[in-house]
Write a protein that binds this DNA or RNA. Structure first.
Lengths: 235, 235
DNA sequence: GAGTGGTCTAGACCACTCG
DNA sequence: GAGTGGTCTAGACCACTCG
C-alpha cells in the first residue's frame, strides 16, 4: 500500500476539523516527513495533492497554509464532442460546419478583447458543431490577421482550431483566459442551435495570448441539454 | 532554471505536431530521462504535468499514450463568495440567509437522486447567499434524515454545509458527482435572486456519497452576472 | 522475462521568507 | 541565519502489461 494517501487523508481530516488555524502554516514538509516516518518527497507528495485540491496553498520560504476560502470547490471540465458521443446510445458522429471564414472588421467588443483599434481588419471564423444531426455548440472566433491569415488555407473542420494554431502554424500560446456565463439565446443563435428564442445556454468566452498580447477571442454558445459539463470528485 | 518545464514543453510540442501516433506509447520515462540527461523522477514530473493537462494518459506496465480525444479542454473552478468579493471595488461582505430548515418528504426527483422511496421523510435546507445586499446563489439541499438530522443543531449560516457534515458530524464523503447546466429562472427562484422571470442562470446539481450510497442532493442556482466561473491556463 | 509506470528513499543545493 | 518550499539525483522495489 502506498503511504502518501494515508498522510494526505490524515492532514485533510485535520484541516476539515479546523485543527490548523487560518493564517498560520501547517507543519512543514520535513515535520510531516518525520511524523509519518517517510522521506520528505513522500510527505511532499501528500501536500502536493492537498494543494491541487485546494485545501492548502504554499509560499516558498514561508510554509503551507490552509486555504479556507477556496475550500471544497467544484471543478468542471469541458468535454469534447467525441467524449459526449461515447455516452449516447447510438454514438453519433461529430460534425463541424463552417458558416463563415473570412476577413471582417472588429466590433467594439472584439477590439476591446484583442486590444486593437475598432474597425481593424481581423479574421472571423464561425462554426457550428454537433453530434449526428443535432447542433451542440456555436463558435465565433476573431483573430489578429497578420499572424493567423494562414489559417484560411487549412482545413477548418478540424476539432480544435487552437491545435492548428499551435501545431501547424507554430504559434506558441502563452496563456488562455476563459470565463463561463449563461445567456438567453438571441434569434439568430437560437435558430442555429435549433432552440426557442430566449432559451438558456452556456456562453464561454476565451482569449488566447501570444506572448503578452491577445491573439484570438472566441465566444462559444453551448446547449445546456447536452451534458457538456460534468465532474466527479473522489476526495 | 528548473529542467522539467523544458522537457514538458518539448514533449508537448511534439504531441501537438503529431509526432507521436495515437494508440502507440510515447517514449518511456526512462527514455525521456536519458534523452534529456536527467533522472527518471525529473522526466516523470514533466509527464505528470502533461497527464494532468490532458495531453497523455498512462497505463501501468504499458506506457504513456497521447490522449487525442480529451485534448485541450478547459477547466472551470467555482469561486467562493469570499473570492468574488475580493474582486469587487467595495469588497462587500458575504451573507447567508436560511430560508428553510426542517423535515419534508422527498419529491420524485429527490428520491431518485438519493435512491430512496418517494415520500420518505428527508431533511430539507434552503439558503440564499450573496454579497452585500445582492443575492448571488440559491441552494436547495436534500439530505437523508438519519445521518444528518444533527445538522439542525448546528449553525446553518456557515459557508459550506459540506464542511459541517465532514468536520462536525464526522461523515466521510467518499465521492461527489456534480453536473453543470443552465436554466431559465422560474418565478419563485427568479424573485429570490432578484432577476426577471426567464433569465438565464447556472444550475449546478451535486450528489454527495457516503460509502456507496447518496447522502445529499443539492441544487444551486447561480446568477451568471457575478463572474462565478473563471479559469486561466498557462500551458 | 523484459519493459513499463507507481512509489519511495536519503541525500543535495537552491531561492525564498522571516524575525 | 534558520527554516521553508522547489527541484534534482541515483538508486531501489513493486505491480502491471505484453509478447
Amino acid at each position: 500500500m502506498p503511504k502518501y494517501p494515508h498522510i494526505k487523508a490524515t492532514l485533510k481530516a485535520r484541516l476539515l476539523a479546523g485543527k490548523y488555524r487560518e493564517g498560520e502554516p501547517i507543519p512543514s514538509e520535513s515535520q510531516v516527513a518525520s511524523e509519518f516516518k517517510v522521506s520528505r518527497m513522500t510527505a511532499r507528495r501528500a501536500v502536493d495533492e492537498l494543494e491541487r485540491e485546494g485545501y492548502v496553498y504554499r509560499v516558498q520560504g514561508a510554509g503551507s497554509y490552509p486555504t479556507g476560502k477556496r475550500f471544497r470547490q467544484g471543478v468542471f471540465r469541458i468535454r469534447s464532442l467525441e467524449e459526449l458521443a461515447l455516452e449516447l446510445p447510438d454514438q453519433p458522429l461529430p460534425f463541424t460546419k463552417v458558416l463563415k471564414a473570412g476577413i471582417s472588421t472588429a466590433t467594439p467588443k472584439v477590439s476591446d478583447a484583442l486590444r486593437i483599434a475598432p474597425n481593424t481588419a481581423i479574421l472571423e471564423i464561425i462554426r457550428l458543431r454537433g453530434l449526428g444531426d443535432l447542433p451542440v455548440l456555436l463558435e465565433k472566433r476573431f483573430l489578429k490577421l497578420e499572424q493567423t491569415e494562414a489559417l484560411l488555407k487549412t482545413d477548418l473542420r478540424v476539432e480544435s482550431l487552437h491545435d492548428t494554431l499551435v501545431g501547424t502554424l507554430g504559434l506558441s500560446i502563452s496563456r488562455v483566459e476563459q470565463t463561463l456565463e449563461t445567456a438567453n439565446l438571441e434569434h439568430e443563435n437560437a435558430k442555429l442551435l435549433e432552440l426557442p428564442i430566449g432559451t438558456s445556454a452556456f456562453l464561454m468566452k476565451r482569449i488566447s495570448f501570444f506572448g503578452d498580447l491577445p491573439l484570438a477571442y472566441t465566444r462559444y454558445w453551448v446547449r445546456s441539454d447536452r451534458r457538456a459539463f460534468v465532474s466527479v470528485f473522489e476526495p
